[in-house]
Every structure is written in structure tokens, then in C-alpha cells.
Amino acid sequence: MPIKIDILRAAAQRTKTFGPHTLTEARMKGAKTAFLCHSHRDAELAKGLVHLLAEAGWSVYIDWEDSSMPEQPNQETAAKIQQKIKELNYFLFLATANSMSSRWCPWEIGYADGQKPNSQLLIVPTTDGSNSHGNEYLQLYRRVDLSNQGSVEVWQPGQSYTSVPIRSL
């Protein structure tokens, strides 16, 4: 099942933070790091996902939080995104209606697919209750979802019965 958008919105409202606060701190602590591919229109959902992953000890990079990024996307933006995708442990794709229709997101996932092993690319499918997003990737990459107990877990492509806590990756 995809993660409900309402769950991501609720997680974005939490004030307590967990896990490493910076990528440098994450590396020093041996925490997992990830690049989050998403539509900027889904900033609230991205924050919610980051919060859920921080609770599992992960540190997630979001490009619009990086003060070194140019204000308007250009070649420098692309080069910096490419570098972050290569340097961080995992690539996460937050699949929403906005990211699925974005011009940048397909480019980012295509680049990541050429740079990282499939085991380091994770799809985060979502649903708004009536529509689900990201299904076309679920046979290619592992997916991130919530277990019945509410913990963040990872499933192999096409499987729905056996998962691994994301904290264990």
C-alpha cells in the first residue's frame, strides 16, 4: 500500500526532531544519508517524509534547503544535484501527482539509476485516497512504506508480504 498523503502531512507538523541534524553529523555517526527527489510543490509532504526517516536515524538532503543552490535552476543546479545523488547513500523518489508530472524528477531518477545500484534507489509511493502514484516503478525498485505497526519499512520490488525496517538498511 502507498503511504497516505495525510500521514506525511501530519508528520510534517511534528516539532520534535530525531536523528542527525546535518549530513556531516550523519556521516560522523554512520547514519544513512539520502537524496530526496520530489516536486517542490510537495514541500510539506517532503518534510513529513524527512521527519519519518529522521525517526529511523536517517539524514535526508532536500535541494531547496541547500543555500548553495542557485535561485533559478541552471547547469550549476544540475551539477550540484548530480554530485549529491552520487555522494549520498540512497536515492529516494517521493512519487506524487506533482513529481510524476515534473520535468526535473524523471531526469533525477534516470540519473540516479545510472549512478547507483538498484538496491540504493527507493520509491516512496503515495495515495490521496482515490489515486495512487509511483506504481510504474514498483517492479523496478524497492519501495518505502509504513508497516501495519506504523514503522518505516522497505519491500522488494513486487512484494507485499516481507519487509525490512529502514533502520536496518
Rank of each mutant, 00 (worst) to 15 (best):
L49W: 13
Y61V: 01
T24F: 13
D42I: 09
G129H: 06
W107I: 15
L138D: 03
I81D: 05
S147V: 04
Y141A: 02
I166W: 00
S151P: 04
L49M: 15
S147I: 05
K29C: 14
N135G: 04
A26R: 14
L23T: 12
D128S: 05
H133M: 01
L92W: 01
S151G: 05
S67P: 13
F35T: 03
E55G: 12
E87P: 10
I109L: 09
N98C: 08
R14H: 14
H40Q: 14
L146Q: 00
S168K: 12
H51I: 08
I5Q: 07
L52I: 07
T33F: 12
K116W: 05
I166Q: 00
D66W: 09
D66H: 10
G129W: 05
G134E: 01
I3E: 02
A95K: 00
G114L: 05
P125R: 03
R14A: 13
G129R: 07
L122F: 01
F35W: 09
L45T: 09
K86N: 12
D66S: 12
L23Y: 13
S39D: 06
R142S: 00
I62P: 07
T127S: 12
S59V: 08
P117K: 13
A34M: 11
Y111P: 06
S147W: 06
Q75S: 15
T17N: 14
D63V: 04
I81M: 08
L122R: 02
N74K: 10
A112T: 08
F35S: 00
P73Q: 07
D66Q: 11
S147R: 07
H21K: 15
S168I: 03
G150R: 04
R41M: 10
A46K: 07
T15P: 09
Q82D: 06
L92I: 04
A31W: 15
N148R: 10
E44W: 10
W104L: 00
N148I: 07
G134F: 00
H133Y: 13
R142Q: 02
Q149G: 11
K16Y: 11
R103N: 08
Y61L: 01
L88H: 09
A12L: 09
D113R: 13
W58H: 10
V144I: 07
L53M: 13
R14E: 15
S99P: 07
P125F: 00
A112Q: 08
R167N: 01
N135H: 06
Q72L: 09
V60H: 05
Q139P: 06
S39C: 10
A10G: 12
Y161E: 07
D42E: 12
G129A: 07
Q72K: 15
F93W: 09
Q83R: 15
P117G: 11
Q75R: 14
N118T: 09
T96R: 00
W107K: 13
T17W: 13
P20K: 13
K29E: 15
Q13M: 14
L146D: 00
V152C: 00
G110D: 07
Y137H: 05
E55D: 11
L23Q: 14
